[in-house]
Design a protein around this nucleic acid. Structure first.
Lengths: 267, 267
DNA sequence: TCTTATCAGCTTATATGATAAGTCGGGTCT
DNA sequence: AGACCCGACTTATCATATAAGCTGATAAGA
């Protein structure tokens, strides 16, 4: 059944997963000081009661995270430079609170992006923005199209900063905001006056960037996002469901097809 | 030799490293659509001409990155939910350009943090800020102490936002900014008048947050960071060296203690 | 006809042993 | 003393083997 599939995807932390978590905790917890050498793979395997394979895979993950570094013939060492470590959004569990936190972080970056864009935008940037802005005009053919254009417009701003870091960070944030955006729009948008207001506000951002007015650009973005934030806050509850974990790997359907196939194959 | 050690740490991308990169490119490049099943480990090993061990370690890393998900008995699938993916600052190679990019990103978050802090700060937050601000007062005992207090002050602002995401993101950014901060201060700071100005500017941030004036807080932070940015831009070149890669793992000496421990543990 | 049991063939997960190669220190030989 | 070698460590990689989950087909039973 579907329930079984979901349970399946959640519970079975593999042995490697658990060992990885444990090792990571030991390292960040300070059990092994930065620069220190870890026990040899063989010893770790014995200590945890698992095979060397599991230890190797766990260490490989930590190595990919920049937490440790191994050198052939010498050993595995705790990295004392934390610059390679990635930034994760683990707590994005769909809670409204989590969404608000992400949204606030996004606002800071987006305001900064608009500010920089106002200073560095080229004619080409402005042309791209204009294109997307047009697709956002009120009463568009499809609702989704306006949303896509909205995202593309903000992305164009990011690219106009000439700062690839800001671009990639906003790309990183976007999927986490996907639900909040959908919610905010479904809450109170769809009403023509809201649509028109949204268009006007975005237009104001564009004009400020075009004019090279950094402060005005910041204010305009802040106004737009404050509006979204308000719509997000006032709406109904969230977190109800956004697809069971099992739905993420595109299973389903096979159940039916299998059954159909067995039926037809019955010969 | 040292040169050999450095070369050693840079070039010898392990086989697993290369396969991981290749596989990642294939996936994000769209060779395998989200939800699609990857070829079996055995086939991948044959296709790349490596052993299954290497494939497994590579897949294990991608799995830890949320790029793929494996299910025993079924296979490995490309995850179609990108929310688990981490954010990395790979290009932080010490170039001045890279530092500026990080700095600009930081500025956006920090301005937002101050803005939120002005709205949500508690009396306790203000007390903490006051403490650090005092330690920043001109002509302090030690130069380093002022720098530490500076960082602590900004951290206190982040915590006053009540947004743990902002706190952890600034923590994530900080080691990457370490060099730029040191550079900016060594460039033109140390002069009494600069120190005094920095203190006054930070004081202004505090006052704005205390007064609950969001806009003033944003402006004040922007002024401080613009100042740092200017000092960073005008100074001498960077990127010369900040410790060879080999020095990052600080081996030596501890090796002995570990060895002694394992030796004694060998029952 | 329909359901159920069983089996063969896939897959990943884990374990184990072997080989290659790098590091390090001690010992030997000159 | 200095150059050299050798053995004991390490990680890296490879090759198999076993266990366990999944899938589909077939056989057995109602």
């Amino acid at each position: 059944m579907v329930a079984k599939g979901a349970e399946q995807a959640l519970s079975p932390q593999s042995l490697t997963d658990r060992i990885t978590v444990t090792l990571r905790e030991h390292i960040v917890g300070g059990k092994y000081a930065p620069g220190r050498q870890l026990p040899a793979g063989k010893d770790l395997a014995q200590a945890f009661g698992v095979s060397i394979t599991v230890i190797r895979e766990a260490l490989s993950r930590l190595k990919a995270d920049g937490l440790v570094a191994s050198r052939q013939g010498k050993g595995v060492f705790v990295a004392n430079d934390s610059k390679a470590r990635p930034f994760r959004l683990v707590k994005s569990n769909g809670t409204r609170r989590a969404l608000l936190e992400i949204f606030e972080l996004r606002m800071g970056v987006e305001v900064q992006a608009a500010s920089l864009a106002a200073k560095r935008r080229t004619a080409r940037d402005l042309a791209v923005m204009t294109k997307h802005l047009k697709a956002m005009q009120p009463s568009p053919k499809s609702f989704d199209q306006a949303l896509v254009a909205d995202l593309a417009f903000h992305r164009a701003i990011a690219e106009a900063t000439r700062n690839p870091l800001i671009v990639s960070f906003m790309e990183f944030l976007q999927p986490h905001l996907h639900e909040s955006i959908a919610l905010a729009r479904s809450n109170s948008a769809r009403r023509p006056e809201t649509e028109i207001a949204a268009y006007q506000e975005h237009r104001e951002i564009f004009e400020a960037i075009k004019a090279g007015d950094q402060r005005r650009a910041r204010t305009a973005v802040r106004r737009v996002l404050d509006g979204s934030l308000r719509r997000l806050s006032e709406g109904g509850q969230l977190q109800a469901d956004f697809g069971s974990r099992a739905a993420e790997y595109a299973p389903r359907r096979q159940v039916r097809s299998i059954r159909a196939k067995t039926a037809s194959n019955k010969r």
